[in-house]
């Protein structure tokens, strides 16, 4: 399975601190709608290959992206794929864990990088995203087939 982006080598986890500052800046000045615009362009343009596959009903690159980068970041997670759902259960989020290590408080918008990214990935596709935050640094992310999906249209 090929990923459009598959970095290797060392990790610079301080970028999670940079992410915290970025979402706080955009969210506090432009609201969630501002964040939604940035994450929409990230999901659909930066991660174009994942999004294009999702539009055709193929979640394989998203699953591979999650598996590769959650493992690379040292997350405590499980990933289950069934016929109708993909369920990513993050028990210890490496991004939140690194903020704690830096002594930073997560922005109120920090988890929007997950919630809004998943939302934008599913927009206009046969899938819907449900992201449940189960604690600070834990969540359950579900990508599931819309029940009314058919060949003529999505989510009717």
């Amino acid at each position: 399975m090929s990923l459009r982006y598959r970095e290797a080598g060392e990790l610079h986890k301080d970028f999670h601190g940079s992410m915290n500052a970025a979402v706080e800046y955009v969210g506090s000045r432009y609201g969630r709608e501002g964040l939604r615009q940035v994450f929409k362009s990230t999901a659909q343009r930066v991660y174009r290959s994942i999004y294009e596959k999702l539009k055709t009903g193929d979640w394989s690159e998203l699953v591979e992206h999650w598996r590769y980068f959650m493992t690379r970041e040292g997350a405590d997670y499980t990933l289950e794929v069934s016929e109708r759902n993909v369920v990513l259960t993050v028990k210890v989020c490496p991004a939140v864990a690194h903020l704690r290590k830096l002594g930073l408080k997560p922005s109120a918008f920090f988890c929007d990088q997950t919630v809004l990214l998943n939302e934008a990935w599913c927009d206009g596709t046969p899938f819907e995203a449900v992201t449940e935050l189960t604690g600070e640094g834990s969540c359950v992310q579900i990508i599931r087939k819309r029940p009314t999906f058919n060949a003529q249209g999505y989510g009717k």
Binding site: Y5, E7, L11, H12, K13, D14, F15, H16, S18, M19, A22, V26, V38, S41, T42, R45, V46, F69, M70, R72, E73, V90, C93, P94, A95, H98, Q113, T114, L117
Partner: peptide, 16 residues
């Protein structure tokens, strides 16, 4: 979560 490896591509969208 945006992987730390890919933060800069998100950053690039923030700049835009």
């Amino acid at each position: 979560m945006i992987p730390s490896d890919q933060f800069v591509r998100f950053y690039n969208e923030v700049f835009k």
